[in-house]
């Protein structure tokens, strides 16, 4: 470890918080759909950084990162295909 893993993970979590605020508060299902995409990549990054923030690297956390990368994709595709329909947000559909 170089000592920078946990600060970088904190920075990524702050990024996640900023876009989470925007996504949960903002109008439209489309914006919320982008959250799933964002949480996939950022969550995997945070998990990998957490795995290497200890002196013997916690390699089981890399398996968690792999699982998360796979299942975030499945969730996002399910949301896009199943839950995102025409009548959901009639006025703000494109915003």
């Amino acid at each position: 470890m170089t000592g920078f893993e946990l600060p970088v993970a904190l920075f990524l979590l702050a990024n996640l918080a900023a876009s989470l605020w925007r996504v949960l508060r903002g109008p439209g299902d489309a914006n919320r759909l982008l959250a799933a995409l964002l949480f996939g990549s950022t969550g995997v990054g945070i998990l990998a950084l957490l795995a290497f923030s200890q002196t013997p690297a916690a390699t089981p956390l890399l398996d968690v990162a792999l699982t998360l990368a796979l299942l975030a994709a499945i969730t996002a595709i399910a949301f896009a295909q199943r839950a995102w329909q025409r009548g959901t947000d009639p006025k703000r559909a494109d915003d």
Binding site: L37, A48, L66, A69, A76
Partner: peptide
């Protein structure tokens, strides 16, 4: 294993983006 996570994330994100963009196009 670390370098295996990256192609998986690339494939997943490409698939999600394609599905979202095509769905948005279909919704008008």
């Amino acid at each position: 294993k670390l370098l295996l996570i990256w192609p998986l994330a690339l494939v997943a994100s490409a698939a999600i983006s394609y599905v979202i963009a095509r769905r948005a196009d279909a919704l008008g």
